[in-house]
Design a protein around this nucleic acid. Structure first.
Lengths: 146, 146
DNA sequence: TTCGGTGCAAACTCTTTGCACGACG
DNA sequence: CGTCGTGCAAAGAGTTTGCACCGAA
């Protein structure tokens, strides 16, 4: 579900940084945009490999880094000492409920909380560039099983 | 700043899990409680080493894990693919503003946001056991330098 | 033609684990 | 005394990097 404007945005970002719009980078963007859920760097590498697209793991990491900097992808973490990513461009911001038992992740969004964040930033003189709000607990299923 | 009740809590937790209250575990708890800010596992290991307290890195990791499970310490992460910890027992919950340029971390707390979280959990059938709310951005100093 | 990009493998960082010995309960 | 904990070093997992070749601009 890669919309063309994301490609354009990527290309423009690369130009602004005097970097190149290579086929590898485009393949990576196209592949990750087809995944609506969060994913790991290595997942993405494997998916590309399985499709017969030749890119190295190093290039996947390097490109994810660029995509995060450009704001097209966001990096999230679920307390596992490894990075997860989400395609983010043109998608409404959301946060996560994470089940500590089955690792299920549910998205939520709350505009009141978002507003409060802005107030907090003002209070501390911060200029917010992003945020991550994670609630850990037991999901409905795991509560029942308990 | 280790209050005695934290030791008691730790001892009770260990007993409840049929685990032992060893001198190593106590040293680790005492040392980390003297640090008000967040710290890394390795920092803690080095601090103990510098004080001449003999514990292995493995024991530090193993004990931190127990302390987190017991609720005395909390694990936080600042998007660096490694874990940070905070002594948490008897200390008011707070969240973090993280400067993406100088890595400065400022604590904040907001009861309205906390209340909203509970509502969200109800809505999704979650039982909250903890949360982490991080706001990334530029701190006052870094904004000025820009 | 010229930088920047790529793949590969090795290096790195943080964390976990297997094992034999040691000590808390 | 039995079980659980410990140190050590090696293994693991995820990620980064150096280098020689390659290709977008």
């Amino acid at each position: 579900m890669l919309d063309e404007s994301a490609k354009i945005r990527f290309k423009e970002y690369l130009q602004s940084e005097r970097q190149k719009y290579t086929p590898e980078r485009l393949s990576i963007l196209e592949e990750l945009a087809s995944e609506r859920e969060h994913f790991e760097a290595d997942d993405l590498f494997i998916r590309l490999k399985n499709k017969g697209i030749k890119v190295s793991r190093a290039t996947v990491y390097r490109t994810l880094d660029i995509l995060v900097r450009s704001g097209i992808v966001s990096k999230v973490d679920f307390g596992k000492n490894k990075a997860y990513f989400e395609y983010h461009y043109g998608i409404k911001h959301h946060d996560h409920l994470i089940c500590i038992k089955c690792s299920k992740v549910v998205e939520f969004e709350d505009s009141t909380i978002e507003k409060h964040q802005e107030r907090i930033c003002q209070q501390y003189g911060f200029e917010m560039t992003g945020h991550s709000h994670r609630i850990f607990g037991l999901c409905e299923n795991c509560r029942k099983k308990k």
